[in-house]
Design a protein around this nucleic acid. Structure first.
Length: 867
RNA sequence: GGGCGGUUAGCUCAGUUGGUCAGAGCGCCUGCCUUACAAGCAGGAGGUCGCCCGUUCGAGCCGGGCACCGCCCACCA
């Protein structure tokens, strides 16, 4: 139990100061090691969440803060519900992002990765990781995240790397991973291929050139339209629609490619839209994805005019070789102009692929890369969502979004020309005549016995991320961790990585463990800047959650984020965070009031009065509601429901109702004390998953030995305490108090003035004293001299006011008249509705009855108000 | 080109299967330093639920259309 000095300290702390308590509270949790479960039991009885691993170079942003808050709510709830709960924590090596960071650092030293070489560079990245890798971990702690920090993982850990190698080799052996010359999205900024998902379309304005290609026959020319004249150097055909009468006679003829002189056959293909441009399409299989397909279909030659260095190749011709693409375009246009071959140019807006990584325009080109065939892997991932084993929250529209993508999935280019990442477990003979794929390096080529060299490429970061839920638990070894916590239960993420990550985890999880890696996927809001733009550093629209924590406290930030989030994107609202800090302060003060005023007793409630029964009933309902809302991932509604219960019901009404009893030092206050403590204890418990710091701090001031709130039990709802009678009686009381207060305010009764009155209404037998106290009435008993001055309508009748000298009589009568009119209107409306035979016969009986009850009530109130 | 979402109080947003006079926070107005909290208490004003048709006894909620705004997917030069 708290000592006198602690209580004195509490008495003096009239405001909740998050900065003074948060680190201490977090330290208590860490010391108690309650975030670290031992791996016992199996996954069906235990509960686990794998965090979307933040980039090891990252810093906490609003997305993390919301996502982390949600996961923490879920894991704390389950932990309190008695499940052995593990929040799997760690960081992602984030190949490209990290490599870019370290390259920047090298650039400031006047060096480069090429200069220091691969081995030294990778060493530098590891150094970087040692120095800065813990930043984001500490930031998650600031948020209060109850992850298992004792068991932190990193996607480049030795064990994790082994899992990645194992998966690659197994997929290769199954024939799902293969090497191919194929059209890829080449990112000239990174000097690497990237996947389709890392490409974004941007709308830009280009010039659409019309270029005349002379016919070999000498009888005129055929005109094509293009926005990329420089790629003409790699043209190998011209296509027209077979039904396009303008060109049917030319099909099979040959045109001569200007500047190059190559002979281009004019071929028919349905792909060509006769209505676009000139209706004739230059075919460049080496640099356009469509043309690549057409080229394959027609067996066309493939010419690569642009190289992986982003410059024109020798095949582009002596005149252009070595030029940057932009320069080559100018040069080609100039050369064509010289020959008078450009017959038109007009501005043209269209979508063009850009690299999401480097921001550079994608150069589609043909490259020898490693691909993963996804069709077979997708099948069970599709089935799982279709039969409901995998559930998105909300189900619409994400289930369909997920399925649409999987049902149209294409091969995944998994190799990257980077240095930081999981190097492919692939070895080539020196001339690449033989390829060996295996988890261990061969001494020599198994086929020819020659020396081997490891493939320089690394894997797409998302390849390793796809294994996160099980590779973090020791897979492919059958570890106790894996048995206890895999499959995980819930995966919390924003929609932007449903394809990049979620779907791939599902596919890899099923393929390699035979089980779905998780079953429930709540999709979170994206938090936008207050002006509706994207939050981003480059736009200057970012808001740092740590600044917000410093200013308002972690609980406030968590509450604010949870309250503002929904299934929609939302603008960041500092007001919601403020609401959270107000709530923390309110809870703090209500708790001070209770703790400093109760007699020290156990917290087993003993209802004595109707308000006791009322609050206990309301709390049970709240317990049910909050539990259901949290379990169905409706965090915003849960947050606001908690706010209403604590602020509205507990503070505004229950505490106010019991004050007279509490201040009566003569009375036996043990039952009331028990009830107050019970109410406080319940509120703290329900609020703890959302606002862990302030609730834990207050918990430590409660009498008795309780241990940590974070390790306490979650309440089972007790339906025996539900008391509709008490809820009705106190509900009416609340309405009546409010009605009288409104009247007082409107007729300008001085705030402190007690008004003589009597209650002419049923249902206030137990609450008359409360009504008198809260509405500042002096209740008259027996026969009363003098006339009723006025009356105020309350549920079940009215309060009659006697000789209140201070009231504004005109205002009072005006007020009564307005109320009469309003009641008459309602009565007319209700009567009309009930007179409608269709309504009475077709609406459900309870709806009709409710309408009748309402009518009776309005009529009673009108009668009490008189004429 | 497909698909999806939004449009509710001055602002930011809730409104679960259609059924009490449509809600919250903030802001605004009025009155209160009432011994937990002035980061508070009490009260109030403010909305043709984007527009049009329809289904229904009854529509913010369901169906059709329209208008703006936004997002995702997509290989029309």
């Amino acid at each position: 139990m708290p000592g006198d000095d602690r209580l004195e300290q509490l008495r003096q702390r009239t405001r909740y100061a998050p900065a003074d308590v948060e680190s201490g509270v977090f330290g208590r949790w860490e010391d108690a090691r309650i975030f670290h479960p031992e791996p016992e039991g199996d996954a069906s009885e235990n509960f686990s969440i794998a965090i979307p691993p933040p980039n090891v170079t990252g810093v906490l942003h609003m997305g993390h803060a919301l996502n982390g808050s949600i996961q923490d709510v879920v894991i704390r709830l389950k932990r309190m519900q008695g499940r052995r709960s593990k929040w799997i924590f760690g960081t992602d090596h984030a190949g490209i992002a990290t490599q870019v960071q370290v390259e920047k650092q090298l650039a400031t030293e006047g060096s480069s990765r090429q200069e220091i070489g691969r081995e030294a560079f990778v060493g530098r990245v590891w150094e970087w990781r040692e120095r800065f890798g813990s930043t984001i971990v500490e930031q998650f702690k600031r948020l209060g995240a109850s992850a298992d920090y004792e068991d932190e993982r990193f996607t480049m850990d030795d064990e994790y790397v082994r899992a990645v190698m194992h998966v690659f080799v197994r997929l290769y052996e199954k024939g799902l991973i293969y090497r191919d010359n194929y059209m890829v999205n080449w990112d000239p900024g990174l000097g690497s291929a990237i996947s389709d998902l890392e490409v974004e379309q941007r709308n830009v304005e280009d010039v659409l050139y019309s270029i005349d290609y002379p016919l070999e026959s000498g009888s005129g020319s055929i005109t094509i339209a293009t926005v990329r004249p420089e790629t003409m150097l790699a043209d190998t055909a011209i296509a027209v629609n077979p039904d396009d009468e303008r060109y049917t006679r030319l099909i099979g003829e040959t045109a001569i490619l200007p500047l190059v002189g190559r002979r281009l056959t004019i071929i028919p293909d349905d792909y060509v839209d006769p209505d676009f441009g000139t209706g004739a399409l230059k075919i460049t299989p080496g640099h356009d994805p469509n043309d690549f397909e057409i080229g394959r279909k027609h067996g066309l030659e493939v010419v690569s005019a642009i190289g992986e260095d982003g410059r024109m190749t020798a095949d582009a011709g002596e005149q252009f070789a070595g030029m940057e693409v932009e320069a080559a375009r100018q040069a080609v246009v100039a050369a064509l102009d010289e020959q008078g071959l450009i017959s038109a140019r007009r501005p043209y807006q269209h979508d063009v692929p850009y690299s999401h990584r480097s921001g550079r325009r994608i150069e589609p080109l043909i490259s020898l890369q490693w691909f993963c065939d996804m069709d077979k892997l997708a099948e069970p991932a599709i089935a799982a969502a279709k039969d409901g084993r995998l559930r998105f929250h909300p189900e619409k529209p994400w289930t369909k979004v997920y399925l649409d993508w999987l049902e149209n999935i294409r091969p995944w280019c998994v190799s990257r020309q980077l240095w930081w990442g999981h190097q492919l477990p692939v070895w080539y003979c020196d001339d690449e005549a033989h390829t060996y794929v295996g988890e261990k390096a061969p001494d020599k080529c198994p086929e020819c016995g020659g020396p081997v060299t490891r493939a320089p490429d690394v894997l797409d970061t998302w390849f390793s991320s796809a294994l996160w839920p099980f590779a973090t638990l020791g897979w492919p070894k059958e570890t106790p961790q894996l048995a206890a916590f895999y499959p995980t239960d819930v995966l919390v993420t924003a929609r932007d990585i449903i394809f990049l990550w979620v779907a791939r985890m599902v596919m890899m999880g099923v393929e390699f463990t035979g089980e779905l890696p998780f079953t429930d996927v709540p999709i979170t809001s994206v938090i936008q800047a207050p002006d509706g733009r994207r939050m981003s550093k480059s736009l200057g629209t970012g808001i740092d959650p740590l600044d917000e924590i410093d200013e308002h406290g972690a609980d406030a930030v968590r509450f604010g984020l949870l309250a503002m989030s929904s299934t929609q994107d939302v603008r960041y609202s500092e007001k919601r965070v403020k609401q959270g800090s107000d709530l923390a302060n309110k809870l703090w003060n209500a708790s001070r009031f209770v703790i400093l005023n109760v007699d020290e007793v156990a917290a087993e409630p003993r209802p004595e009065t109707v308000e006791d029964r009322w609050i206990l009933s309301r709390l049970e309902r709240a317990t049910d509601d909050i539990t259901a809302l949290l379990e169905s991932f409706q965090f915003s509604r849960a947050a606001l429901a908690l706010y209403d219960v604590l602020w509205g019901e507990v503070c505004d009404w229950y505490i106010e109702l019991v004050k007279p009893r509490l201040y009566d030092k003569e009375a036996d206050r043990s039952a009331l004390s028990a009830n107050l403590l019970h109410v406080l204890e319940r509120v703290l418990t329900l609020l703890h998953p959302l606002m862990p710091f302030v609730t834990e701090e207050i918990w430590s001031f409660l009498p008795g030995e309780r241990g940590l709130l974070a390790a306490s039990g979650w309440p089972e709802s007790n339906s025996a305490a539900i008391d509709p009678d008490a809820e009705r009686v106190v509900g009416d009381l609340i309405e009546a108090v409010t009605a009288v207060r409104r009247w007082r305010d409107e007729v300008r009764v001085p705030a402190a003035k007690r008004v003589r009155a009597r209650i002419a209404a049923d249902g206030y037998e137990k609450t008359a004293a409360h009504l008198a106290q809260l509405a500042r009435l002096e209740l008259l008993e027996g026969e009363v001299n003098g006339d009723v001055e006025t009356s105020v309508a309350i549920p079940g009748g009215a309060v009659q006011i006697y000789g209140a000298e201070d009231i504004d009589a005109g205002e009072a009568e005006k007020r009564r008249q307005e109320k009469r009119e309003q009641l008459k209107g309602e009565i007319k409306r209700a009567k009309g509705k009930l007179a409608n035979e269709q309504f009475v016969s077709k609406a459900p009986p309870e709806v009709v009855q409710a309408e009748r009850d309402k009518l009776a009530r309005f009529q009673a109130e009108l009668e009490e108000l008189g004429e």
